[in-house]
């Protein structure tokens, strides 16, 4: 059976994926509750891999739980914590568990996380990992050994349209396409006009692009993102819009902004879908989708 996420993208449908961050600890009750809310509404659940280098439940285990719920998981794989043997072994394992989508990235540095003394691995990086996945899909491991049974992944990568300077980032995007990336998920974008310019470039390549959206909870959060997260730039007018909201309505305004952006991305056919990173507010995703006219 092939990836339903892939089929949705290839059918030309405006696709929605939601991010699920595995918890730190074995209590997954909130995660299960969020998955129930998202079931039947989003096309896939993108499960992060120790995001921000903070140690949590592994992406693979949560992807299996997503599958057991009858939903479609996207396995995020970073190169920070495993060498080429570990990565390939986990990819083979993911395939036999029925996971069909993998998102390849290099991964935040250990210094960003909660185990700063850990040894960063980076035996391979995102472009090379995409090649590894392509190889496994073609029945060969990284050393060229024949596999008894190939994998069946639909592989994607990430891109930061707002990286400064943009030129080296765009060349890397091209390398990822050449290495086999079939879909891209972007870092959070807030400036749709600027994103349109990126899409003019991205549309030259045979890949699907999901715009990354992070829900703004407050003006403070927007300022924090601008100051601390490379590649994210929240325009001042959006910050003013949230600041100007009635007391207690900041989050609602943030959700309205996200819904407005989704609506525009879809109506103007700017990209192929959105990836909503709710960061702890997964229960708000269906509300935003409804506001955007997707439900």
């Amino acid at each position: 059976m092939s990836s339903s996420f892939r089929e949705a993208l290839e059918s030309g449908k405006f696709v929605v994926t939601a991010e699920a961050g595995p918890p730190k600890g074995t209590d997954i009750s909130t995660l299960l509750h969020d998955l129930d809310l998202l079931k039947g509404r989003v096309d896939a659940i993108n499960v992060t891999d120790n995001q921000s280098a903070v140690m949590r439940i592994c992406s693979l285990a949560i992807c299996k739980i997503v599958l057991d719920k009858g939903m479609e998981p996207i396995l995020q794989m970073t190169c920070r914590d495993r060498n080429r043997i570990g990565l390939q072994s986990d990819l083979l394992g993911a395939d036999v568990l029925g996971i069909k989508n993998v998102l390849c990235m290099t991964g935040d540095h250990v210094l960003a996380g909660d185990h700063k003394g850990a040894k960063p691995v980076y035996d391979v990086e995102s472009v090379q990992l995409l090649k590894v996945v392509d190889g496994l899909n073609n029945g060969k491991d990284m050393s060229g050994n024949e596999l008894k049974g190939a994998t069946h992944f639909f592989q994607g990568a990430v891109v930061t349209p707002e990286a400064t300077p943009p030129e080296p980032q765009m060349l890397k995007f091209q390398k990822k396409v050449a290495a086999g990336a079939r879909f891209f998920q972007t870092q959070a974008i807030y400036d749709i006009d600027k994103f349109k310019e990126f899409m003019v470039f991205a549309r030259k390549f045979p890949v699907k692009v999901l715009a990354g959206l992070v829900i703004l909870k407050s003006a403070g959060m927007a300022n924090f993102l601008n100051a601390n997260v490379p590649g994210i730039r929240v325009p001042q007018e959006l910050i003013d819009e949230i600041r100007g909201a009635e007391k207690g309505k900041a989050l609602e305004t943030g959700m309205n902004i996200a819904a407005r952006h989704i609506r525009r991305l879809k109506e103007e056919k700017i990209c192929d879908g959105v990836h909503i990173m709710a960061i702890g507010m997964e229960d708000k995703v269906p509300v935003i989708m409804e506001k955007a006219g997707l439900l």
Partner: peptide, 30 residues
Amino acid sequence: KGILNGPCGGTKDGHCEISAEIPCAWVRIY
């Protein structure tokens, strides 16, 4: 990260996500 094929998404104004004091190797290479 010892990346061999271009900058990661953490480049900000030509600097590294780890520290604004580190110029991004891949921006320099570019």
